[in-house]
Design a protein around this nucleic acid. Sequence first.
DNA 1: CGTAGTCTTGAGTATCCTCAACGAGGGTGG
DNA 2: CCACCCTCGTTGAGGATACTCAAGACTACG
Lengths: 222, 222
Amino acid sequence: MHVHAIDPQRQALRIPEPLTAIESLAVGKTYRRGQKIYGADDPAEDWYRIVSGAARKCLVLADGRRRIVEFLLPGDFFGFGARQRHHFYAEAIANGTTVACYQCRSVQIAADSDPRLSRQILDVAFEAISRSQARMQILGRTTALEKVGSFLIEMHRRLAQGAADPVVLPMSRYDIGDYLAISTETVSRALTDLTKRGGIALVSKRRVKIVNRGMLENGHSD
Amino acid sequence: MHVHAIDPQRQALRIPEPLTAIESLAVGKTYRRGQKIYGADDPAEDWYRIVSGAARKCLVLADGRRRIVEFLLPGDFFGFGARQRHHFYAEAIANGTTVACYQCRSVQIAADSDPRLSRQILDVAFEAISRSQARMQILGRTTALEKVGSFLIEMHRRLAQGAADPVVLPMSRYDIGDYLAISTETVSRALTDLTKRGGIALVSKRRVKIVNRGMLENGHSD
DNA sequence: CGTAGTCTTGAGTATCCTCAACGAGGGTGG
DNA sequence: CCACCCTCGTTGAGGATACTCAAGACTACG
């Protein structure tokens, strides 16, 4: 991990309503693929925001299996919500993932004297709720085809620059399967299936172009 | 729907950290089973809290199917998070469900001059996130047996008075299936299966006693 | 007492998982 | 530079799981 200042140019891109008042409190850190950002039993002392790259938030079940609870993409705040300790751990997916860290005590103190900042923090929390519920709509789908289709639409919404641009998936098929509660093989099969039916086009293994949005949502184009 | 004052006795039971400062702003409303609390396209003007009974938060998919996104139980705050309009609708499950309503403009104004209130609101938002993520752990399970088992544990945690008391489920098998993304029949089969294996005991159709907690989590008792 | 909604159980089928093999790509070391 | 290893991704075959369709029992309520 590498600690440094944050490029203000870069971070401005992806923050819907930036917490301008506390950006001065932020410390930038850079991680390699697979490196842990915080552990499941670490005290919850910091809040985080992805500046560039991607990360995954995971939990370990009683029987040792891992589950990905959430993908964290540029602009996403995370690590808050745990009152004392985290229940999850977070680690970088892509090499060179940059994360802004805010000491949450400092933020809270600043918020106590600035109602506008309080509102912005609340907005960030609402944003996290909305991410959470977006995933429920996906997991609530019954077939694997619908799950993968909705997943691609969500990633497109959160990652794509232009509407016609292909999505660049930062995560592996294995991660996608873990996230959607289906097997890697089924993810793979769903992607080839969607390609054959003309729902998507695979520019490369990780670059997906959305051709027929309706098909991704329903599994059929009518 | 019936508007009235809130019984302060009753509401004190289920609020982890009550927003004491705004309880005076609350208006109580009582609903019958199936009655709508707010609609999907209603302007998001109020925040709500379940005082007694239960409700479900739903969304309607493009193809007309309904999905239950969340069950709302006594003490749960809901209806916030939508910036302008709700994306979901909420309706009562049980007859005589009582809901406390807070005009969110008034709350925001009060919060602007009271940092302590801001913190409490943030806690409520964090609580909603935690509810959300608890459900992910459930939906992330692979087998129906595990899903139903985890669901019962979550309901027990959120509803039960004493640890040994049976859970009284306020919702139908159909609702549970919708929530867990499995069919009604599978819910029913899972419940009889868990009974046969000694994981639970069905005191009545809606009253479930948890006998072997480990089995509910893993699907097997070792 | 009838009716509508809820719940359970059964049979057959579709879907997805597991196990397995194989190909492609990236990094490392000789 | 190339051989090697390792991870990632794809595809196939067989079996387990859950869904759909269907029938019937139970419950609550008028």
